[in-house]
Design a protein around this nucleic acid. Structure first.
Lengths: 109, 109
DNA sequence: CATCGATGTGCATATATTGCACAACGGAAA
DNA sequence: TTTCCGTTGTGCAATATATGCACATCGATG
């Protein structure tokens, strides 16, 4: 047995940011494209695109700037608003998981 | 926008206890039957029964003792093992949510 | 002006969730 | 002893959600 946790941000009861979504956005940031980020996350481009745009719609904020066509077919990068949101999310969840792991090992020896 | 969290216990990657499941078990404890607990939780008996037995199977531990037929048609109560597990879960998650709420209001003014 | 790899999207399929319907049960009351 | 009641337990249909395939579209570069 082991403990797991998830911390997410909601708008109108709908998820806009979770650890998984942050990892996806970071993969976009590192690879420069949604499709390569999807490869890294081991999901389809369809799903990556859906989740990102879901968050964007619900937030009313553009998280990724995309370019269709052009050099290399196009690409995507995180907007400043997106980066700021990611930073805040990281600050929000920092330490919580290790706290839970510590408590768990104490309670379930 | 607001923050939400979930903390759960897993066995073989499958959920065996979460806040929702603990609330369900507590409702069984208070009402003395799964069907009335389902009413309290505003779910069908089917779903309540499924979730409880799911947890029991995965844990390999009986969480509720049930009686079919008899006075009032039957009933259910939490086993000592179930109560102990609930107590540990509560101790595990205590304070985490308020910590997150505090951080959230600081980070998202 | 043809090429290439990425974005964007419709739609079919698979999977999980939910809920309806009904059988089985047994203590209590008649 | 027999009927009655509300509960447990379960098969299966209906619904919702997630997943993935297929393909059109785009535009800077060489």
């Amino acid at each position: 047995m082991n403990v797991k946790s998830n911390i997410w941000l909601e708008v109108d009861g709908k998820v806009v940011l979770s650890l998984w979504r942050v990892q996806l956005l970071k993969a976009v940031q590192e690879t420069g494209s949604i499709s390569r980020a999807a490869d890294v996350m081991d999901i389809t481009y369809r799903r990556a695109w859906d989740k990102i745009h879901q968050s964007e719609e619900r937030l009313g904020v553009k998280l990724v700037e995309t370019q269709i066509g052009g050099a290399g077919g196009g690409g995507a990068k995180i907007t400043p608003e997106g980066e700021a949101l990611i930073e805040k999310y990281i600050a929000l969840i920092t330490g919580v998981d290790t706290l839970l792991q510590q408590r768990f090992t104490e309670l379930f020896p």
